[in-house]
């Protein structure tokens, strides 16, 4: 059942990213370009996501366990550390250069653009490097 949920959730997520325009880096950069001709569309993607996810997390708080597993695996940390901030800054800079964040980059692989594949290879290398250096 968890596998089926995984597949369904992936399909929904990929469809949402595509319909919302997140898989088009030029549109994403248009959203990040406050000083130019600003395209606010992606704020609606975020708003739509929160509109559903917010009540879902509220519901989860009132349940002891999810439907098909023994326990919720939800992060519990509340401390602010340097890694969180430095990581977010590095991510934001990369996002602003290419216009891809991880979800759209992976979703866009299906279009078989060489540049998308190159981005994903570099992204995986970055994830690997982080593991190697930080453990």
């Amino acid at each position: 059942m968890k596998n089926l949920i995984g597949l369904l959730a992936g399909l929904l997520f990929g469809a949402g990213l595509t319909i919302g325009g997140m898989v088009q880096p030029q549109k994403v950069l248009g959203f990040l370009d406050l000083a130019g001709v600003w395209d606010p569309s992606l704020a609606f993607v975020m708003g739509g996501g929160l509109l559903v996810a917010f009540p879902a997390f509220a519901l989860a708080r009132r349940r002891d366990r999810p439907l098909f597993d023994l326990a919720f695996q939800i992060p519990t940390r509340n401390d602010i550390d340097k890694r969180l901030i430095v990581g977010a800054v590095l991510f934001g800079v990369g996002w602003g250069i290419a216009g891809y964040c991880p979800g759209p980059a992976i979703a866009a692989l299906s279009a078989l653009h060489p540049a998308t594949l190159l981005f994903c290879v570099a992204m995986v290398a970055g994830m690997w490097l982080q593991r190697r250096l930080m453990r």
């Binding site: 990581g87 991510f91 990369g94 996002w95 570099a122 995986v124 290398a125 970055g126 490097l129």
Partner: peptide, 9 residues
């Protein structure tokens, strides 16, 4: 960009 996004996230 890819390296930064992978490492940073």
């Amino acid at each position: 960009a890819g390296l930064l996004v992978g490492f940073g996230t």
